[in-house]
């Protein structure tokens, strides 16, 4: 069957090699593009709409997992999500759990037999195409989050099984002054470049921390991730309105902003 694929791999020789191996394992597969980093992968995937995206996990700019999340969030609502295949040099134990899931992985150097099995599985999934070869957004988001935690660099808190202590007070510097902001006063967090904007009812602060790391230090009952760059305090949300594209618009108590929950996270908002 004819399908299209995008390869995201930062090492040129390995990208060429994966393309060559795919040409043997699945001659009809059309490679619509190759991207040399995570940012380019997201751009190209959204522009070219491939059926399958091969993503190197370690890439400059944006990891393969982050790229998959960004692609899934911004993917056209009426089109089924692409299938993601992660490519990694080292068989991290965690990956084995995903061999038979909607998300697949292959190892570098590429083993022809293993790649053949992946291709067969992808073909079957695309043939059936009940709409979502890449799984439903919920399944994908849960899986990506799990993967991110499991693949977090060894030695970090995430790798130690979420042993990060809960934050109760944030310390944000404004000039030479350090402001202590109780976490309970925060309405929402929004990642902006290398910073996180911390929005309370009264004012806004900047802290320098990766969003993922912050997320691990927050109470998951209280703070919900609703977008790859937004974490909101559940109690601060007043209403959630779903639009036809599957996105959910949130209004907050005590703040005029309207936040968007992407469809990866929209499933959290449903009537009891």
């Amino acid at each position: 069957m004819h399908a299209s694929a995008l390869i995201a791999e930062d090492e040129p020789l390995l990208a060429a090699s994966l393309q060559a191996e795919l040409a043997i394992a699945w001659p009809q597969l059309r490679i619509v593009g190759t991207a040399a980093n995570g940012v380019a992968a997201v751009e190209q995937a959204l522009a070219l709409h491939p059926d399958i995206v091969f993503l190197d996990i370690r890439m400059p700019g944006m990891s393969g997992l982050e790229a998959a999340e960004a692609i899934a969030e911004d993917w056209a609502a009426d089109a089924p999500l692409p299938a993601f295949v992660f490519v990694t040099a080292y068989e991290e134990y965690a990956l084995r759990a995903f061999e038979h899931a909607a998300v697949d992985y292959v190892l570098k150097p590429v083993d022809a037999a293993r790649l053949g099995r992946t291709c067969a599985r992808l073909q079957a999934a695309l043939q059936a195409r009940a709409g979502t070869p890449g799984g439903t957004p919920q399944v994908l988001s849960a899986m990506l989050n799990q993967l991110k935690d499991l693949l977090a660099a060894p030695g970090t808190d995430a790798a130690l099984g979420g042993a990060a202590p809960r934050l109760t007070v944030l310390q944000a510097s404004v000039g030479a002054t350090i402001h202590l902001v109780p976490v309970a006063e925060v309405l929402y967090f929004e990642a902006a470049d290398k910073y996180i904007r911390v929005i309370t009812a009264g004012r806004e602060y900047l802290i320098r921390l990766p969003l993922r790391q912050l997320l691990q230090q927050l109470d998951p009952q209280q703070f919900w991730q609703v977008h790859r760059s937004v974490i909101v305090r559940a109690e601060a949300v007043a209403t959630a309105v779903r639009d036809e594209s599957g996105k959910v618009e949130l209004t907050l108590r005590g703040h005029p902003v309207r936040l968007v929950a992407s469809r990866l996270y929209a499933h959290r908002f449903k009537p009891m």
Partner: peptide, 18 residues
Amino acid sequence: EPHMLFNTLANLRVLIAL
């Protein structure tokens, strides 16, 4: 480091043919 080692070997494998 396994990533370094296996990525290097993967490159080497491609170069052997090329």
